[in-house]
Structures are given as structure tokens and as C-alpha cells.
């Protein structure tokens, strides 16, 4: 259980996140949608504490995340894996080492710095890569991989952390539709099979509808919608995206607009359509 209360973040006079409150039960898959600049990324980064909240609280169990420091903060980050739009791998290191870096907080700094990982850890890393279907790239430098492969390496690294929560900040924004589906399927699989809570920012409405059981809509730093995908009516969507009457849902979908039908009848339809191509 994960509870956010009145969380705010100011950048100078600008308010990025404004008094956000919600809670996420263990094992849920939550999608956050909204325009760029609505404060989605800032919210996720505050949960991982890559950004510090200006005010408010984040609680996980009995732990006040917003007040963590030093060693405890790093332990929290281990429990709360983060996946980035730009993958944030180390391009010059090989894929296996990149995955092994997920173990950094499980071992002493001295051992890590000497690049000494145990056989068990290496096997774990290979298993994670196998699960994501990219074990054949294990010894290549991460920078030489395609975007979709790199994002899967990042997910494998997140798995190595043995996290309780995975935060994904626009995980598919830089990917083509095929790779986007593979990555989202992997996240959904982790959520379903391992029971890890997944909170993901998405900028395409259709993806959120097809993968998430719960959707949060953000506009100008506030949560303006919190409910099931089926409750996302055109009115709600307009409110989230702050659009006028001529707003078309297609506009929120950047990756799939070539195959989108005029109206979106069934959640998940678009993804199936992509999978079929």
C-alpha cells in the first residue's frame, strides 16, 4: 500500500505538482495520463526521490518516503525501480553489466567498484534477460542496441533490483509501435506474475486504456481524474487534456494514429491491431 497525500512541487514560482493525493494498493497497474507539462514526470520522480517534494507526504507502509536520507533513501530506491523514456543505461558497458548494476544496492560499494559480481548474480541477470527475450545481446555494449532492446535491458535491470514498485516514466515514448507493445507487455507481465506495483506515465490514451486497470488523469499539476478506463469519457478526456470542443482523441495518440479508427470502441483494440500487422 502506497499513499500520497497533498504532494506539491514548486520550481521557483511555477507549480509543477499541486497538492496531489491518491493511494495505490499493492500489485496494481496504474497509468497516469495528461499533457506534457502536466506534472506526470515530476510526480514519478518525487516518488523515487530523484526530485524532492516541496511539501506533502509519500508513505509506503509505515515509511515516510519524503523524509528519507542517505542510506535509507538508497534502500528505498532499490525497492522502487525506475524506468526512463531515454532508458538511462550506460552505453559503453555491456548489457550484462548494465543489468548487474541493478544489484548495486544489494552489495558493498567496494565489491561493486571492483566490478566483482558473483556467479549467482550473473545467472540472475541472464535469467532476467531471458525473460525479456534479449539474452543473446548479453555481451554487447548497451549503446549498440536498438531502442526497444535498450528499454528491455532497463526493465531487466529493474527486475534485478527485486523491487516492490516499478515506476515507468514514458517508457514507450521513444519507441516504435512494435517495440512499444513488447515493452508494455513485459511491464504488464511483471505486474501480473510477480505482483509488483507498476505506475507508468503514458502519453497515449489507447495504451493506458489497454494495459492499466486504473487511470489517473493529471492537468496543471492536479489529479483531475481517478478511475477505471471505462469511466474515461470524451468529456473527461477533454478536461484532462484541457482541449476545446474540436478535440479529437486521436491527437493524444502519437504512435498509433495511422491505424486508429475514428472512435475508440474497445480498450486494447489498437494494440491488437498493431500486433496483427
Amino acid at each position: 500500500m502506497f499513499e500520497i497525500r497533498n504532494l506539491s512541487r514548486h520550481f521557483g514560482t511555477k507549480v509543477a505538482v499541486d497538492g496531489v493525493s491518491f493511494s495505490v494498493p499493492e500489485g496494481q497497474m496504474v497509468g497516469i495520463i495528461g499533457r506534457s507539462g502536466a506534472g506526470k514526470s515530476t510526480l514519478l520522480r518525487m516518488i523515487n526521490r530523484l526530485a524532492d517534494p516541496t511539501s506533502g507526504s509519500i508513505r509506503h507502509g509505515d515509511v515516510e518516503i519524503a523524509a528519507l536520507k542517505g542510506e535509507a533513501l538508497r534502500r528505498w530506491r532499490r525497492d522502487c525501480a525506475m524506468i526512463f523514456q531515454q532508458f538511462n543505461l550506460v552505453p559503453r558497458l555491456d548489457v550484462l553489466t548494465n543489468v548487474l548494476l541493478g544489484r548495486l544496492n544489494h552489495r558493498s560499494t567496494a565489491l561493486s567498484v571492483m566490478n566483482l559480481f558473483s556467479r549467482e548474480e550473473r545467472i540472475m541477470a541472464i535469467a532476467a534477460l531471458e525473460r525479456l527475450g534479449i539474452e543473446q545481446t548479453a555481451l554487447q555494449p548497451a549503446g549498440t542496441l536498438s531502442g526497444g532492446q535498450q528499454q528491455r535491458v532497463a526493465i531487466a535491470r529493474a527486475l534485478m533490483q527485486e523491487p516492490r514498485v516499478i515506476l515507468a516514466d514514458e517508457p514507450i515514448a521513444s519507441l516504435d509501435p512494435m517495440n512499444a507493445k513488447v515493452v508494455m507487455d513485459a511491464l504488464a507481465d511483471i505486474n501480473r506474475r510477480d505482483g509488483i506495483t507498476v505506475i507508468t506515465n503514458l502519453h497515449t490514451l489507447d495504451t493506458a486504456r489497454s494495459y492499466c486497470r486504473r487511470i489517473l488523469g493529471m492537468a496543471e499539476g492536479r489529479v483531475v481524474f481517478d478511475g477505471l478506463p471505462s469511466e474515461l469519457t470524451t468529456d473527461v478526456v477533454r478536461r484532462i487534456y484541457g482541449a476545446t470542443d474540436d478535440f479529437d482523441e486521436q491527437m493524444t495518440s502519437t504512435s498509433l494514429d495511422f491505424s486508429m479508427p475514428q472512435a475508440l470502441p474497445v480498450p486494447g483494440y489498437a494494440m491488437q491491431a498493431v500486433a496483427a500487422c
Binding site: 543505461l89 553489466t97 548494476l101 548495486l104 561493486s112 535491470r157 533490483q161
Partner: peptide, 24 residues
Amino acid sequence: RPEEGLRAVGGSWIERVRFALVPQ
């Protein structure tokens, strides 16, 4: 970006320097 990735993993300052910056 790699440094941010390792910060999110929970790496210490030395580990971030060693793995995210030194190779670059």
C-alpha cells in the same frame, strides 16, 4: 542519463561515478 538511472537504482555516489561517468 546513465547517472540518473543508477541514482534510481540506489547506487551510492562512488558507484555512480564508477559506472555511470568513468566509462564515458
